[in-house]
Computed example of a mutant assay.
Amino acid sequence: MQSDQAGSGRYQLKGAIGSPYSMKMRAALRYRRIPFDWEGGMAGFVAAQSMKAKVIPVLVTPEGDAFNDSTTLIALLEARHPGGRSLVPNDPALAFLSFLIEDFADEWLAKAMYAYRWARPVDQDQMSRWLVFDAFRGQGEAVIEEQARVWRDRQVGRLALVGAGPAAQPVIEASAGRVMVALEGQVVERGCLFGSRPSAADFALYGQLSQLATDPTPQTLMRAHYPWLFRWVQTTEDLSGEPEGQWDPGLDTPVLRALLVECATHYFPMLVANAAAVEAGQPMFRWHVEGVDLEQATNRYQARCLRALRKAHADLSSGDQARLGPLLAGTGCLAFLVAGVSKGVAA
């Protein structure tokens, strides 16, 4: 899509600091040292209205073309700016793991962000005001308070639709807790998932955690139980001055194994149930995890996520598939990735 900002010579990133995907992309652009201008507040929401999928952030290229969806944006920047400070490991097996964990953070860990933000009055009250302030600052307290009430009612009312209702909340928060336990040790010992260099997966995790580190309930939790991770979130906001770092060659590390177990236990079962519901034309779907029946609205985007993950695995060389096999099989992910897939084709 063409924007009226063609010829500026810089990228324009239009988003909001209350959006995990906006923060993901802002931090990624900073680390990659790609010149850009940040436009927060209302700018992102206005820009999103002209996009096919009305989501933020919106990235406008120097030529004036506009794109959104953070995974698409990272791939776009990799194609336009190959080489130095890439977010994709040069080992195809590691690159696949980065893609999988990025997707897990974007689609599953996002449920923790949503549940923590909108399930409890203390978070509902503060964050509805803060998020609306970002968009309506300068328009007076009466306007901000009224818009905050509207936004709070809307978001709380959507908890069940996005799969973060009362039954799901303890399951989601327990899963997020295990993710934070795994990351707490990793950020101290190596700094990032795959060594001392951040990947797309690191920035996807950062995006979700940037919100948990802001909202009252999860911020208190992080400060008390995951203090190194809390500080990692703050430092990862701007890594523009950090060295590029190194990828570690190891595939089977404790942090990767812990995250893949969460993928197999929670994320893949949801994706498979959702894909079946999409195919059947059902508006809602259910899946069973940890002794609990969970439910949410059918999501066509997440059906595409499952196809993309299966295709990415199928497109690996036989050697890279063999290298990943023990880790993916041992964590329970492999069965979900190979189900109904032939080489280069996602079922």
Rank of each mutant, 00 (worst) to 15 (best):
D123P: 06
S175L: 04
A95V: 02
Q155F: 07
G83M: 08
E145F: 05
F104T: 02
V150E: 15
A160W: 00
F194A: 02
V150N: 15
E78T: 10
L76H: 15
Q124T: 06
V162E: 10
R190F: 14
A168S: 14
R149M: 14
F104M: 04
N90T: 10
I172D: 13
S98W: 01
R149G: 15
L87R: 00
Q169H: 15
D153T: 10
G140F: 14
E107H: 12
Y116N: 05
V150L: 12
I101F: 11
S196W: 09
A148T: 00
Q139E: 15
M113K: 01
P92A: 00
V171D: 12
F136K: 12
A148W: 05
M113G: 08
I172S: 04
E102F: 10
A182I: 06
L76F: 11
Q139R: 14
Q126I: 11
S128T: 10
L76Y: 12
M127D: 02
V88E: 01
F104N: 09
Y116H: 06
R120F: 13
A75P: 09
F194E: 00
L77V: 07
A105V: 02
A93S: 15
S175T: 05
Q155W: 06
E78M: 02
L87Q: 02
W118D: 01
A75T: 05
N90W: 03
A148R: 04
E145L: 06
N90L: 04
D134R: 14
R197N: 10
A79M: 07
P170G: 13
A148K: 02
Q155E: 11
L193R: 00
P89F: 01
W108S: 08
P166M: 07
F203A: 05
P166D: 13
A142D: 15
F104I: 02
G140V: 14
Q155K: 08
F203I: 09
F133M: 13
V187H: 07
V156Q: 09
S98T: 05
L159D: 06
G138M: 14
R137F: 14
L131C: 11
D125G: 09
A112L: 01
E189A: 13
A160M: 03
V187A: 03
R129Y: 07
C192H: 14
R85T: 11
S175G: 08
Q186T: 11
H81F: 04
S199Q: 09
G163N: 01
A174V: 07
E78C: 03
P82S: 03
A160H: 13
A105W: 03
G165P: 06
G195M: 07
Q147N: 11
Q186P: 04
E102D: 14
K111S: 11
A135R: 10
R178P: 01
A142G: 13
W118M: 00
I172M: 13
F133H: 15
K111R: 14
L100K: 04
R154I: 08
L183A: 09
W108G: 05
G163Q: 00
A148C: 10
P92K: 00
L87M: 12
R158S: 07
L109T: 03
R158Q: 12
R149N: 12
P121H: 08
A167I: 06
E107N: 13
G165M: 08
H81R: 01
E184T: 05
L109C: 10
F99C: 01
V181H: 10
R137G: 12
V187F: 06
L109A: 13
W151H: 15
F133E: 07
P170Y: 13
D125M: 04
M180P: 00
E78Y: 09
